[in-house]
Design a protein around this nucleic acid. Structure first.
Length: 190
DNA sequence: TGCACGATGAAC
DNA sequence: TTCATCGTGCAC
């Protein structure tokens, strides 16, 4: 599999420059591609969570622009990668317009190519794809890390649920902003 | 300068 | 249910 393979067609910046609520379910079924050490690791996105902006109390951007959230407020089509619990990494894709502070957390992948480790959780998939803070602010239209169009998208049903681990966010914790592919065995918490 | 707390995962 | 482990944001 190479950069020119049909399945490795990068999603353009325009894809990301839309509302998080709109982009999130469209990430399902698409590929996350990581080039590391000359080898390619490809996973199919099966679970995501949308974080809408500063008004969304569960979003990191609700703190406003800080050294950490700066990337979330930046232009769309970039990776927002952060360290959680002092030991795990989580990866988001920045969406919407610059300044909106919206991003989508990638929560689970189905291994497609070059992946041996488990990918059914936001920290597990980062570990499997060697994604850490060095990739924070990485341009997703570049070659190290990007999203791609699969050769053909199989049909599936999308399930909407409350987001995981954001109970502190009051009413925002109950919003149905988690999306996953119904019945997929790689979803972190079906 | 100190401190409470995680958008998690693993063990018990 | 408990715990590992440290960067971040905010209080003092």
């Amino acid at each position: 599999m190479t950069d020119s393979s049909p399945g490795m067609l990068r999603l353009p910046r325009d894809f990301y420059a839309r509302k998080a609520i709109e982009v999130a379910p469209e990430l399902l079924g698409r590929y996350l591609v990581r080039n590391v050490g000359g080898k390619q690791r490809v996973g199919r996105i099966v679970e995501v969570e949308a974080y809408l902006g500063p008004h969304d109390r569960a979003a990191h951007s609700s703190k406003g622009v800080t050294p950490r959230t700066r990337v979330m407020f930046g232009p769309p089509g970039h990776a927002y990668v952060y360290l959680i619990y002092g030991m795990h990494h989580c990866m988001n894709v920045v969406v919407d317009r610059e300044g909106e502070g919206a991003a989508i957390l990638i929560r689970a992948l189905e291994p497609v190519h070059g992946i041996a480790a488990r990918t059914q959780g936001p920290a597990l998939l980062c570990k499997a794809l060697e994604i850490d803070r060095r990739l924070n602010a990485c341009d997703l239209t570049g070659r190290d890390l990007y999203l791609a169009e699969p050769d053909e998208m199989s049909a599936f049903k999308v399930v909407r649920r409350p987001r995981i681990g954001v109970d502190y966010a009051g009413a925002w914790a109950r919003r149905l902003l988690r999306f996953y592919i119904q019945g997929n065995s790689c979803v972190s918490r079906p």
